[in-house]
């Protein structure tokens, strides 16, 4: 464990806590893409299938449980909670996310570390996570002004993978035969997708203005 990876995990945790706070405090999920939440639930379920067979550390196991449970709770809340689900922007959240699932699955069958069930699921989860934010970014562009908590949620979610890239660079230089090129390349694509969001987020912070993404 290194400081970049720990900071990345904490940033990821903060993004989920900010999202939970937004939904709980405002009893609304307006501006949140349910499709992105469903994709993330799939990412965690596919990536953490080894939670019962591979014990790495107490920290690792607890974080896996927290990520799976919180994301499933958010999806349930956006689908089942009678007050929250009314504020879901159904007509704006129209990204065809099934294509993202299919494309990630095909790519995982072609490019993986080992042709085993677990490794293909792991590669699938890595590729899917890289594109999982797309429905959310499209929804932000369509829904005009973005409320603070939603903006912070997306910011922390994008920042965590950027910190993971620093973690991979650090491990590359400090650990012999460290190679995570699938996660690295995918992580670079994932972080690059946030580039324009980060730009407008920085502008809104610098000008102390409301965050607004151009349509």
């Amino acid at each position: 464990m290194n400081i970049f990876r720990f900071a990345g995990d904490m940033t990821h945790l903060i993004s989920i806590l900010v999202l939970l706070l937004k939904i709980y405090a405002t009893k609304s999920c307006s501006g949140i893409s349910r499709k992105t939440q469903e994709l993330y639930a799939l990412v965690f379920l596919a990536r953490y299938v080894d939670i019962f067979t591979e014990f790495i550390s107490v920290y690792n196991t607890i974080m896996k449980i927290v990520f799976i449970a919180s994301t499933l709770a958010i999806v349930w809340c956006m689908r089942g909670h009678r007050v929250v689900r009314r504020s879901y922007d159904k007509e704006l959240d129209t990204f065809r996310h099934y294509f993202l699932i299919a494309a990630s699955l095909v790519l995982a069958l072609l490019v993986h570390e080992k042709f085993t069930f677990q490794e293909i699921l792991w590669a699938f989860s890595i590729y899917l996570e890289a594109v999982a934010i797309l429905p959310q970014l499209v929804l932000l562009q369509r829904s005009g002004n973005v409320d603070n908590l939603t903006g912070q949620y997306v910011f922390f979610l994008g920042a965590y993978r950027g910190l993971y890239i620093l973690n991979w660079i650090y491990r590359y230089f400090t650990e012999p035969h460290f190679s995570r090129w699938i996660a690295c390349v995918s992580g670079l694509v994932q972080t690059a997708l946030y580039a324009d969001f980060f730009y407008y987020y920085f502008l809104s912070w610098k000008n102390n203005a409301k965050l607004k993404l151009p349509a």
């Binding site: 990876r5 990536r47 792991w122």
Partner: peptide, 10 residues
């Protein structure tokens, strides 16, 4: 610490 897959990251 034996890892079947070398995925020690979240």
């Amino acid at each position: 610490l034996k890892l079947v897959n070398n995925h020690d990251e979240l």
